[in-house]
Design a protein around this nucleic acid. Structure first.
Lengths: 346, 346
DNA sequence: TCTGTCAATAATAGCGCTACGATTTATTTG
DNA sequence: CAAATAAATCGTAGCGCTATTATTGACAGA
């Protein structure tokens, strides 16, 4: 009996053109050494380093992060979930974070929750499938299942753009009620006593709601009158103009207006101009966001500038620290604060 | 000699809490069946499906996409590289694309090139490390190395937001020179003969440059005068106002102005208002972008509306088709066009 | 000369999953 | 009712890499 009877070459896999072994072979070292070189170059001799570098260049080797991640049980990806990147605030944070993370060769996986906790939950599940190095969520409010999913992960879970509630792990942001308070106090300092808050999409945007509540509270505390007029759609200048019209119809006595953000405020300014309502003499206006047009409009808009950029950078820093082993105390809270930009609209 | 001498349990790996085998065991099927169920549920019997579903829920199983991607030699990630997501145009595309891709359980890996081809190259390299299902780039201009890296990949390479040059694979967008032409022709139709183009960051923003060139060309073709005034920084209303001042100083005879985008145009409107320059009587203004404030400002801004949203959706569609095996002819070009929004500023 | 120590490198054993062929079971049909 | 066909399920062999341990070689001290 022929015991050399060979099985036919059974199955065949797809593959990557150039692998680490190819590099190793060309550089005349073992694959282990190539791997070591890629992860800790300082542990490899100068001669070997050079040979490997040369081989990588020559072969145009691109490491397979999935293989690496699988073997190391963690990937070079960071998942970030924001309501929407169309919103300039979150765009800013995402952008600054991506820039900071690139230096550590970490990549951003982006998801949009559209202010929907169910959506967020699904995205968290998908995100975890990548065994990310960290996961970043917007706000402190999440579904029970989301909390459960994240309760026991070994990676940093960072909640951004909101402070002041129970947090899963770390939180980076500021207190939105304080923003509202600051706006109200500012208007009152300008001798306004009939205050108004114009808000968009507040049924979904928890943080806008918090600003509104802080505003009302502070107004009440000083005995000023304060009303709210809102609109369910996403903030825009158009909605802002509409809200102003509605507001003046309902509350013609108003002399100080805070807006849930600068888009609304811009619309208010546009409407005031059309209707020859003097700003700030007849009506003081304050916004939130300090968007790109806010310093340039007529009159320049007083507004509260959040720290979207800083939030992203701090999140990246936290992730970096964790990666470098500095376990850091969990449940860290970083208050990035906000600043009042006093301009001529108030 | 004791041939039962056992080696000590050699090494130990980290691991994921719940794996597919755990699910299989609980559901009383083989891991293969679980895998099959996850990928092609219709190929598994109702009984098994139910048992597996139950087990997944019970164990809270989260598949490991890296293992899956490694085995399948391709991942559920799509890489998208844009200049910056702070730019509302790209934010729109990224957002609509993410929404469309989520339905197919594909995830977006985001990178910012900051208008730098070197940066882009590095990001492409990083992106390829994930064996993405597709890769999306902005524009048609890339470094030689980038082209080389992408020349032979088996996945769709989609270039967005620009048409009219040699493309790597598919391209989705529109012709920016046509935008410039449309703007010039519009102003000329409004009886303007002394035209001006105000541009920001044109040394980096190739597409803004193309719009400018189209504008100049069309003006020249009809015998109208056309000048350019530009500023190196990112577009903003502030820069727009500065550009207008500079422009009127250099070209006081101007009666029609096109802006590289609506931020600039908004700044122009602000400045005109401050200087009591009548728009459109003295000066007609047209922008590009149709941003959120453009319909609401004073006067409402005539502008050209691109199709950022559609670009994202079409890109997602292309990727989906490829995933479902419809090989589609390569080098596809999809012109998403643009529309002129004629409002009162012109 | 013989250890002992250290630095550099290599061999080994998977990480969790998918693709493929093989096998089993159910269903049909001559 | 056996044979042929179809449907459902399973077993196997990696995907390309990392982490750990094992090995090698150089050099020091005694």
């Amino acid at each position: 009996m022929d015991n050399t009877m060979r099985k036919p070459p059974r199955n065949r896999r797809k593959m990557q053109s150039v692998t680490m072994s190819d590099v190793a072979e060309l550089a005349n070292v073992s694959p282990s050494t190539v791997s070591l070189f890629l992860r800790k170059p300082e542990a490899v001799s100068a001669a070997a380093s050079q040979a490997i570098s040369r081989a990588i260049d020559k072969l145009n080797y691109v490491p397979n992060l999935m293989a690496g991640g699988l073997a190391a049980a963690s990937s070079r990806a960071v998942s970030i979930l924001v309501p929407s990147v169309r919103n300039a605030f979150f765009a800013e944070t995402v952008s600054s974070m991506q820039t900071a993370l690139k230096k550590q060769r970490l990549q951003l996986i982006l998801g949009h929750t559209e202010y929907d906790e169910q959506e967020e939950e699904e995205l968290v599940r998908m995100a975890l499938s990548w065994a990310p190095a960290a996961i970043v969520l917007t706000g402190l409010s999440h579904s029970a299942a989301t909390r459960r999913l994240l309760a026991n992960v070994a990676i940093p879970v960072i909640e951004i753009w909101e402070l002041g509630g129970p947090q899963i792990d770390a939180a980076i942001g500021f207190h939105h009620d304080q923003v509202g308070i600051a706006a109200a106090e500012h208007l009152i300092r300008q001798d306004r006593r009939n205050l108004l808050f114009l808000g968009a999409r507040m049924h979904q945007d928890r943080r806008a709601r918090q600003r509104c509540n802080g505003f009302l509270q502070a107004a009440k505390a000083t005995g000023a009158a304060a009303k709210v007029v809102e609109h369910p759609d996403t903030a825009s200048a158009e909605i802002g103009a509409m809200l102003l019209a509605e507001a003046l119809r309902l509350h013609p006595e108003a002399d100080g207006i805070a807006c849930s953000n600068d888009h609304i405020a811009l619309g208010v300014l546009f409407a005031c101009e059309r209707q020859k309502i003097a700003v700030p003499d007849r009506l003081a206006v304050i916004g939130f966001g300090d968007l790109s047009f806010s310093a340039a409009c007529n009159p320049p808009l007083t507004t509260i500038r959040p720290s979207g950029d800083l939030i992203g950078r701090e999140a990246a820093r936290l992730i970096e620290e964790h990666l470098h082993g500095e376990k850091a105390d969990a449940h860290r809270t970083i208050d990035t604060r906000f600043t009042l930009q006093h301009r001529r609209s108030s």
